[in-house]
């Protein structure tokens, strides 16, 4: 089992942090192998941001995503750059409000979920910054790539003290959404 996840957005969305949490959940709490890498671009401050996580039950050779099974795209730029890389039949999660121009032709190759994560984060926790955790919850629930328990522990390991409550709330909201998606209610 080798699963590749790509997360793309822009600086400040917490792209790198969510990839670290996902990798950590797999490595520390699921006894799986996982590698997390990130791209350094010219505009690391406020510019494009990309991270990859590869998870496997055996030693991982090539550490980067070749054809991501799952992609989380949080900006128009990321959408345009990375959508075509996704494996045929793969899952693509799209932040609705930030990606106004979509390629419907290309999307036919994938299972695409379009959700206004930022708005939902703001609504459920009062803090749009928790969007990355919410999205992570959604991804985990939807794909089962790691268990809910594992991702919850990894979230708690990785966030600043005093923000546990907010982040867990966002994560749970993500699970809820994922549940709905699985049931086809979205």
């Amino acid at each position: 089992m080798r699963k590749e996840v790509l997360i793309g957005g822009f600086g400040g969305q917490g792209v790198i942090l969510s990839s670290v949490i996902l990798g950590r959940a797999a490595a520390v709490y699921e006894a799986l192998y996982s590698v997390q890498t990130q791209a350094y671009g010219p505009q690391s401050r406020g510019g494009a941001s990309k991270a990859e996580v590869v998870i496997s039950d055996e030693l991982i050779d090539y550490p980067k995503a070749l054809n991501p099974d799952y992609a989380v795209l949080l900006s128009q730029q990321a959408y345009e750059k990375y959508l075509s890389l996704v494996k045929e039949g793969g899952i693509v999660i799209v932040e609705k409000d930030l990606i106004p121009n979509r390629n419907e032709e290309l999307e036919k190759n994938f299972k695409v979920y379009v959700i206004p994560f930022t708005k939902l984060a703001e609504e459920s926790t009062g803090l749009s910054l928790t969007m990355n955790i919410l999205t992570l919850g959604f991804l985990v629930k939807l794909t089962g790539i790691v268990s809910e328990d594992a991702i919850e522990k990894a979230v708690l390991d990785s966030i600043p003290k005093g923000t546990e409550h907010l982040n867990l709330k966002a994560l749970k909201k993500g699970f809820e959404l994922g549940e709905k998606a699985l049931k086809g209610e979205l």
């Binding site: 670290v20 490595a27 996982s34 590698v35 997390q36 550490p63």
Partner: peptide, 10 residues
């Protein structure tokens, strides 16, 4: 830089 900056299970 690649090994230095990547995160992995250890």
């Amino acid at each position: 830089a690649e090994v230095g900056h990547m995160r992995e299970r250890v």
